[in-house]
């Protein structure tokens, strides 16, 4: 199935904005609306567009799909680590560092707290999982057509 030039151009042009929006939502999550899951879904939608417009072979060339499982499970591990590490300091799981009401290190307007790391893990998990699932189904369709 061949898609029109228009679709392909739009798909290619939209990829970077999708990733940027995803990134913005990811790191602004703690001061504003957004979180890792939404960011992951938006980024994955950007990738889905590439699959639709170019077919899976081209899309895989743009992104190391083999690494998708590693990204997903790496993200899960990162989140788990953030959740469990406070135990070693004798704190409850999921304890925020710095805690509520404490002084936060600012990087511009971004607040550096451990939940952000947790959300980066969630982002990786969702993005990896979604792209992996899309890739699986895209290959399946491709195999059926040939």
């Amino acid at each position: 199935m061949k898609t029109s030039v228009m679709t392909r151009v739009v798909a290619r042009v939209l990829l970077v904005p999708a990733l940027v929006v995803a990134l913005a939502i990811l790191i602004k999550g703690y001061a504003d609306t957004g979180d890792g899951f939404n960011a992951g879904v938006i980024a994955a939608l950007g990738m889905l567009l590439q699959y639709v417009a170019f077919g899976y072979e081209e899309a895989e060339r743009m992104m190391p799909v083999r690494l998708v499982a590693v990204i997903a499970f790496g993200g899960l591990l990162l989140s788990l680590a953030v959740a469990l590490l406070p135990l070693f300091w004798g704190l409850a799981i999921f304890t925020h560092v710095p805690g509520p009401g404490e002084e936060v290190i600012h990087l511009g307007t971004v607040e550096l707290i451990t939940p952000v790391v947790f959300d980066i893990g969630v982002f990786m998990l969702v993005f990896g999982f979604a792209v992996g699932a899309i890739d699986l189904l895209a290959r399946a369709i491709h195999r059926r057509e040939t």
């Binding site: 979180d35 899951f37 879904v41 969702v126 999982f129 979604a130 699932a133 699986l136 189904l137 399946a140």
Partner: peptide
């Protein structure tokens, strides 16, 4: 609800792949 959406998201992917397997 966000959590439930995430779970539904995972489950629909799982079901899709199951359907594909049944189809093959």
């Amino acid at each position: 609800t966000l959590t439930a959406i995430v779970i539904a998201f995972g489950i629909s992917a799982l079901l899709m792949s199951l359907v594909y397997r049944v189809y093959t």
